[in-house]
Design a protein around this nucleic acid. Structure first.
Lengths: 239, 239
DNA sequence: ATAAAAAAACAGAACGATCTGTTTGTCGAG
DNA sequence: CTCGACAAACAGATCGTTCTGTTTTTTTAT
């Protein structure tokens, strides 16, 4: 049932539950109620993950933050792993549907900032958000939680592959696609590394992260170029 | 002192406990026993951190892995934070005294590989070791554990500053020392990000990390130069 | 169409395990 | 005799999970 969504917009079953809750077309009262409960749980879990991390995110805490009963939670998600799997799906779905902020318009392929912009943008949309941070938290927890790893490793792999393809569809390297993937992989390592940082002075940390991402973006930009400098007028159909 | 390790042995009290354990000169039997117990605890905690992560490293587990009793542990370290603080000191001390492997000799400042070598070397000695991984684990736990943060934040800051200075004493940038620090900071973010990664195929992951570090090292190398180059004739007044 | 049966959604108590921290007792060295 | 080092039992809380009811919705039989 939790089939990995094959392509960008064609959403597979499982991750689309929360989406349907808005368009109430043809939703039985039971399904609507279930969807509402699941949504409350996933959103509460997201907040808990960001604030307290994976290990301190207990089912009790999620239950209380979501305002649902013990029975409701265990009915929807019998085990904690089940819940976390659903939360991960919820997060990826949420991140996927977020639009880029209008603050910085996408530059043209001729723009010298074209390459760096993509990494700045990915940082802002995929990592420097509550959902992105929660996702990084789950990702990090995989290292020492075998059951969790077994549950969501395929999802993460698919997610990363999707990000890779997003970059690959826009950027290229003289060294070939392997180099692009490696640089994107490096970018992800940085982003997830920064996500796990904590300090007393939060504002200062954020500013520092901004500078570091900028530095990394320009560094990587020196290695990449827009893909097919001739036929790039066709905007790749991402979402 | 041909120090190939981030040097500065001016160590404060507390981190020197384990060192004295070797030179048993002028150590009372009781103190020796205490030192032995503390050492066993710290080493067991290191193993637990690498294998199970910070949150799954309970005092109970450490006690059992170290082969000491509950009383012995609580006598040496009344609280878990106390223990973790001592473990962090122990780890930094252990990393500091590890020598670079003979596999790759340090290149001369004229060598084109001079800059990249430093980052490769730092990865191998500071991060890609059991001690380095354990340290990264504690570092990551700081984000959501306020008490831990209060305890070891100064130590981490000092540790990072020490690493910064190690690089600064050898490398320079036309943009100034701030740029060097930023690149080193970037390197640390990557290293710690990779440390928190887990996968089923561990060997494959290690090889991938090796490639990523190599890629990052060469990337950064394009931005830096040996400290005593023509552009900057500040004498290498290091040690 | 409507009553009975089944299933889903939920509520809440309880369980065994584990966690951190405290307290009391033992014992050998100084 | 005193005290540091250890041993072990214990306390209080929380963890994830299981279990037993209750209400609401859907299905089915007549």
């Amino acid at each position: 049932m939790p089939s990995e969504t094959p392509n960008l917009d064609a959403r597979g079953r499982g991750a689309a539950d929360e989406a349907e809750e808005e368009r109430q077309e043809a939703l039985s009262p039971q399904e609507a109620k279930s969807a509402r409960t699941r949504r409350a749980i996933c959103e509460a879990a997201t907040r808990s993950l960001v604030e307290f991390g994976y290990r301190e995110t207990s089912v009790l805490r999620v239950q209380s933050m979501a305002g649902v009963s013990r029975g409701a939670l265990t009915h929807q998600y019998p085990t904690k792993i089940d819940m976390m799997g659903a939360v991960a799906e919820h997060l990826m779905d949420a991140v996927r549907r977020t639009r880029a902020p209008r603050t910085q318009a996408r530059p043209e392929p001729g723009d010298p900032d074209f390459v760096a912009w993509h990494f700045r943008s990915a940082w802002g949309r995929l990592f420097h958000t509550a959902e992105g941070r929660a996702l990084s938290e789950i990702f990090a927890a995989m290292r020492t939680d075998e059951a969790l790893q077994e549950r969501i490793a395929p999802m993460i792999a698919d997610w990363d592959e999707r990000i890779d393809r997003w970059f690959l569809s826009r950027l290229s390297s003289p060294e070939g696609d392997g180099a692009v993937r490696e640089l994107v992989r490096l970018f992800r390592a940085v982003a997830r590394g920064l996500s796990s940082e904590g300090a007393a002075d939060r504002a200062r940390l954020e500013a520092e992260h901004e500078r570091l991402i900028e530095r990394l973006a320009t560094l990587i930009a020196s290695q990449l170029q827009p893909r097919s400098a001739a036929a790039d007028d066709t905007p790749p159909k991402h979402e």
